[in-house]
Design a protein around this nucleic acid. Structure first.
Lengths: 143, 143
DNA sequence: ATGCTGATATTCACCAATAAACATAGTTTT
DNA sequence: AAAACTATGTTTATTGGTGAATATCAGCAT
């Protein structure tokens, strides 16, 4: 499904061109929402509905699951891909993820993540320095 | 499956010709990922799917599994073998493995590894001098 | 050796995707 | 109603990916 890392620009009107290879699948409908680590999550409508149900069924008694569900559910917005393959990112989401112009679109199998490019690169640097742990984790997954 | 060591060149557009004997099997689709020791891993789509499913099913609520999945999934890219037997390596992966032009393609049974030739030769030298220790370690594994 | 075959390397030309500027229609404001 | 603004759509230029053609090289057979 979604895979890879892509760099794209947001235009003056707040529109973002999605990588050409993902357009077909996203044309049926997509949902953007506030993600974790200051990025945005983008799901197909289908995937989103699965997730939304899970979120809605979380125990409302626990304060942290409650706020996590709120973040994702209340922050969500359905977006359309226009004829040129762009989607309009609402202002409040662009602000949430502190996006200026250059953004990174990252494929994470069942979702896309949209990052401000500076944040992405910082995050990645931090991660790659820990690659020793990764080797071990890979072992556990049977690679 | 994959076996042998081959030296190939990356062309101006970032394309790499894969050894002719592997084309047939890779034609169905392949995935390149960030490997260990600054090289790239190349899997058949089939092999990759197994891993990706596992990664995607990790809980997104935990910060370290989240970043691990990000690194592996976003770091991967699905590639196609064109009619001339070449595949396009995305910029960010070539940078990751610090590849210029000459690269080594090494068969490791269920995956291919792609190395910058300089790194490969350094690495190999280091290994060969340690081969005594390695032999002992193998003994412990019962080989 | 010579010529043949298949594989790799390199170059050029074309087409599709992206970025950016511009145009239009529909709303809101005064 | 006119001006300004917003959202959406269109056009163009540039970039980069894709395909085709040619050249080079190695292995093999005659």
């Amino acid at each position: 499904m979604f895979i890879g890392e892509y760099q794209h620009n947001i235009d003056q009107k707040g529109r973002l061109a999605v990588p050409a290879k993902f357009r077909k699948i996203l044309n049926k409908g997509a949902v953007v929402t506030k993600g974790l680590d200051d990025c945005l999550f983008l799901y197909t409508t289908e995937e989103w509905e699965k997730l939304a149900e899970k979120l809605a069924s979380l125990p409302i008694s626990k304060s942290n699951t409650r706020s996590f569900a709120r973040l994702m559910l209340a922050g969500a917005m359905d977006v359309e891909i226009d004829k040129q393959g762009r989607m309009l990112l609402p202002d409040y989401l662009r602000k949430y993820a502190s996006m200026k112009k250059k953004v990174i679109i990252a494929g994470l199998y069942n979702r896309l993540e949209i990052w401000d490019d500076l944040k992405w690169n910082k995050y990645k640097k931090g991660m790659e320095s820990k690659s020793g742990d990764i080797a071990e984790a890979l072992g556990e997954l049977g690679v």
